[in-house]
Design a binder for these strands. Structure first.
Lengths: 240, 240
DNA sequence: TCGTGTGAACCATTTCACAGCT
DNA sequence: AGCTGTGAAATGGTTCACACGA
């Protein structure tokens, strides 16, 4: 059978590429604002601080959108990336744990600017439950099932202490979310059809302390702190 | 390089492994609290939700710490991982941007529980500068050079809006920090001897939306969110 | 000529599978 | 018999280098 896809490559997109797409998108939006009509892989690569071949390979996975000799049309490329990322679809988000972190998330540029709708907030602390935070009121976590049944969040964010995280994850899964973003420093267990990603501050810090110690040693001098050198780490995009 | 290290393997440790070490450490601490004296790679792998061979390979990079037929001594292994990670050394941290996120970081389990010392906070907002947040007072960002000269932060955390991030990074580098953890949604430029890592909420969300859209399509049915309602379907529904 | 799209080489990481120690 | 440590195979991702189209 001769199936030429009308468009849209069905190719599998590697996770590493998926993580870079939002970065490209952000940079392209800057170029668009600056009124630049086209961009080369070279220029985009410089902005994203990655290799130009990587940019071309990443973009080619979405389809052949470039013009040889010219580069990519900025506006068109943005549209293609947004389509791949599902921008424009509706992604209702529930956030559990309305401490400083939860509050930071509610008000974050990350949500508002990309069409993620915060539809429900939960906590257990009496002084928080019932209060307005950002666009909604905070419910008690016990009401998660009923509230979720009504609002159908498709992404759940866990911003609780580690001790509560698994329990919350279970509740979110039961409530039907398809993806969980976990900020608690805890390995979680969820069914394999639920997407789970971690953002873990303490891991990031410890990774830094690992490389800093190594470097201090390698530089031969000094105890931990300041201004030792010798090794060049951060080869390139640690854009995680 | 004419030397048998007295101890401490000189082998290069892959970044992927470095990121897992803090996870193992956390799990081992749990086992220690539970009074379990030894652990097998199999058990630790189950807890970390990774492959057992991976655990063995990761740990073997630090040295041969296991006992065949028995497993690893929990307390000893913790000590080895902590040594590799530079736990116990002094890592003074400066945080720039004391909004909700900055505040969340100051009070975070991540800092307190791993010996990271928050030595200085900075912001530009008048209503924040001069106030106590957590253990210290917030300085105006303009005072970063003088404050840093005194306190020698070795890690800088950027929790500002994207627009200010590069400027802050430059100031931190000039002040001599060797590592920067950037929470702003912005690609930064730093000298190659400064370690730079990103934590980017909006990327994480967009990655989720990518996989969720794909799944919605693949599942053949449903609109974007779970349990269909409203909203238009994305182009074509073909499987693959 | 410029710059994309892509096979092929390269490098990193994961997983397998098993020899060898306890 | 049980479990580590590690070569070797498999997989995933990056970079090179160049044919080809605009």
């Amino acid at each position: 059978m001769p199936d030429e896809r009308t468009e849209a490559r069905r190719r599998r997109i590697p996770e590493a590429t998926v993580v870079r797409l939002p970065v490209y998108q952000r940079l392209l939006a800057e170029l668009l604002r600056a009124g630049q009509p086209t961009v080369s892989s070279e220029q985009l690569a410089a902005m994203a601080r990655v290799n130009a071949a990587k940019v071309r390979k990443d973009l080619s996975l979405l389809g052949s959108f470039g013009t040889r000799g010219t580069g990519y049309d900025v506006a068109f490329l943005i549209a293609q990336i947004e389509r791949a990322l599902g921008v424009g679809l509706d992604w209702p988000v529930a956030i559990v744990g309305i401490g400083n972190l939860g509050r930071a998330l509610v008000n974050s540029e990350g949500f508002s600017s990309h069409g993620f709708r915060v539809v429900a907030l939960f906590d257990v602390v009496e002084s928080v439950v019932g209060h307005e935070v950002g666009p909604t009121v905070v419910h008690h976590i016990d009401r998660l099932p009923e509230v979720a049944a009504e609002l159908h969040p498709s992404i759940g964010v866990i911003a609780t202490p580690a001790g509560a995280a698994q329990e919350v994850a279970d509740a979110l899964v039961t409530a039907g979310v398809g993806a969980i973003l976990n900020f608690a420093p805890k390995v979680l267990s969820v069914p394999s059809d639920v997407l789970l990603r971690y953002v873990d501050l303490s891991i990031e810090l410890q990774v830094m302390s690992f490389y800093q110690s190594r470097r201090a040693e390698a530089g031969g001098a000094q105890v931990p702190p300041i201004r030792a050198f010798g090794l060049s780490l951060s080869p390139e995009g640690s854009a995680r």
